[in-house]
């Protein structure tokens, strides 16, 4: 069953199908928030918010919409609302808490977290969408309102910058 088929069943009242969508997307959505450098517990609450909105506003889902882009739009709205309520939030303020989310925190992982944190948000976002959310250029473009060519350029620059920061930290 595709994501879209499951979501259509949810809109028809078969809310059990939301469990399928939850199992498929819980990890990538959690990472969507974890890498915005909020504490793990907050990322968990925000992920929960996304699924709450999925259920509550299920009737706004229309047949023919790509589910993945729809749910990430919800996630981005949830994040937007959260930052409005927490204007003091800075990207690096909670960096130390990110490591707590991992079972095995190695030196390499730590170094990568630091490098990721130093990336501009716009670069980090496309990398995470590509890596963790497994989104295609088309899907990223649709979610962020960018052309595919722009997404490609941004992804390449993000990769280069992450590489530069990572290896610079390696030498330090």
């Amino acid at each position: 069953m595709t994501d879209e088929q499951a979501m259509l069943l949810v809109t028809e009242g078969n809310t059990d199908q939301a469990a399928i969508l939850y199992e498929r997307y819980k990890k990538s959505l959690l990472n969507f928030f974890v890498y915005r450098y909020v504490p793990y517990e907050t990322a968990r609450d925000l992920t929960q918010q996304v699924f709450w909105r999925l259920l509550r506003y299920r009737n706004t889902y229309k047949a023919g919409t790509v589910f993945k882009t729809w749910i990430y739009e919800i996630a981005r709205n949830v994040w937007h609302d959260y930052t409005k309520q927490n204007p003091e939030l800075t990207e690096l303020s909670e960096l130390t808490n990110v490591g707590d989310a991992f079972d095995e925190t190695t030196d390499q992982n730590e170094q990568l977290h630091v490098a990721l944190a130093q990336l501009p948000q716009t670069y980090r976002e496309v990398l995470l969408m590509s890596r963790f959310q497994d989104m295609s250029y088309d899907e990223i473009g649709e979610t962020l309102g960018l052309s595919v060519a722009n997404v490609k350029v941004r992804v390449f620059r993000a990769m280069q910058q992450l590489r530069d920061i990572y290896f610079k930290l390696d030498k330090a």
Partner: peptide
């Protein structure tokens, strides 16, 4: 760097499952 990024993906915990 790309491979390392994949390893840096935290998993969802039981508390999230329970609340959902």
């Amino acid at each position: 760097v790309w491979k390392l990024l994949k390893n840096a993906e935290p998993a969802a915990d039981e508390a999230l499952d329970n609340s959902f």
